[in-house]
């Protein structure tokens, strides 16, 4: 493990026991996050992006969910082996999260001040007065006008974009090592999306916070991320630096994703490409490459065994029979 890696996820598994069977939402995910880096996790709905990150925070609703294995090493300690109290000291303090829908993520019955101050008091041991000053400062950094006045208002008095700014201010108020942003712009207006992403970029750079950005938009990833993990059916199928992946995607799924983004530089009269078929149901998935039914380059071996992960370089890997020794 190199010095600047602050979060190392190894073979993380999170399963949900449902009436229909065992849902392997996350099945052996591994990645590293370096200090100050922005890592994008891309995938379709249901590919396990959010569950991966809830598992890192140990916030999977249980039952029916449980973490079935793996390690999440944060600053030299495995989060999955910590006591509940130790994990609480990390949540909101060392690792914080913002979520998809800012309209429902703030408690509608409590003032913004109450919600922000409780986190700061809890983790930084400040008194309420000092914590409120700190909260106002964070709101100001997050671009909320007249924060001294706005802080005493309730969430419904803010617009969607403003609420996400509040969430960001709240998440960064304890200057965490890692910010997990779970589709932070999906529920927002397109014009606001860019502003929010820029704000996350800006503040994380200023505070030296590493960011895990979960999204299904390749455009978002391209603009913001240093490294990318592409997830499919609960596993990472391709991993690498952002430029490498966009310049030379290896996995047929990644290739398909990039092909299906409309491009401004190559005006085409053809229909926009889309990957045929549907993402698989991950309940009782057999041991095979889950992508083979939709893959243009599927081979016989794909139907019988999950591909070995081919390490192409230190930071680059792909899980596909087309590469590495299986070839």
């Amino acid at each position: 493990m190199t010095d600047d890696v602050i979060l190392q996820v190894k073979d993380l598994k999170a399963y949900f026991k449902l009436d229909e069977g065992l849902l392997k939402a996350v099945d052996g995910v591994s990645f590293d996050l370096r200090k100050g880096e922005t890592l994008g996790i891309v995938g379709e709905s249901g590919s396990g992006k959010s569950v991966t990150n809830l598992a890192i925070m140990r916030l999977i609703p249980s039952p029916p969910g449980r973490i079935a294995g793996g390690e999440v090493e944060f600053m030299g300690k495995d989060i999955l082996k910590m006591s509940e109290e130790e994990v609480r000291k990390i949540r909101g303090n060392k690792i914080s999260m913002i979520f998809q829908d800012p309209m429902t993520c703030l408690n509608p019955f409590l003032r913004i001040s109450t919600q922000m101050v409780e986190t700061i008091v809890l983790h930084q041991g400040l008194d309420k007065k000092a914590a409120k000053d700190k909260a106002i400062e964070m709101l100001k950094l997050a671009g909320i006008p007249a924060p001294e006045k706005r802080i005493d208002q309730y969430p419904h008095q803010f617009s969607g974009g403003m609420r996400q700014r509040v969430m960001i201010a709240m998440a960064l108020s304890c200057e965490p090592e890692i910010l997990i942003a779970d589709e932070p712009t999906t529920a927002l207006d397109v014009t606001i999306q860019a502003q929010i992403l820029e704000l996350i970029n800006d503040l994380s750079a200023r505070l030296g916070t590493a960011v895990i950005l979960i999204t299904h938009s390749l455009g978002v990833v391209a603009g913001m991320c240093d490294a990318i993990c592409v997830m499919y059916a609960g596993r990472i199928v391709e991993r690498g630096n952002a430029d490498e992946i966009f310049a030379d995607p290896k996995h047929p799924y990644t290739q398909g994703l990039i092909k299906s983004v409309p491009r401004l530089d190559k005006i085409s009269t053809q229909r926009l490409y889309s990957i045929p078929g549907q993402p698989p149901n991950v309940i009782n998935l057999p041991d095979c490459c889950p992508f083979f039914p939709r893959c243009e380059r599927a081979m016989d071996v794909c139907k019988t065994k999950y591909p070995k992960v081919a390490e192409l370089s230190a930071k680059r890997s792909v899980a596909c029979w087309l590469y590495g020794e299986g070839k």
């Binding site: 916030l59 609480r88 999260m97 979520f99 408690n107 409780e118 986190t119």
Partner: peptide, 18 residues
Amino acid sequence: LRSDYVRTARAKGLKETV
């Protein structure tokens, strides 16, 4: 208990009783 804002509260590191 299943709502988003309770998930936020948990993600902030608050004790379950709080």
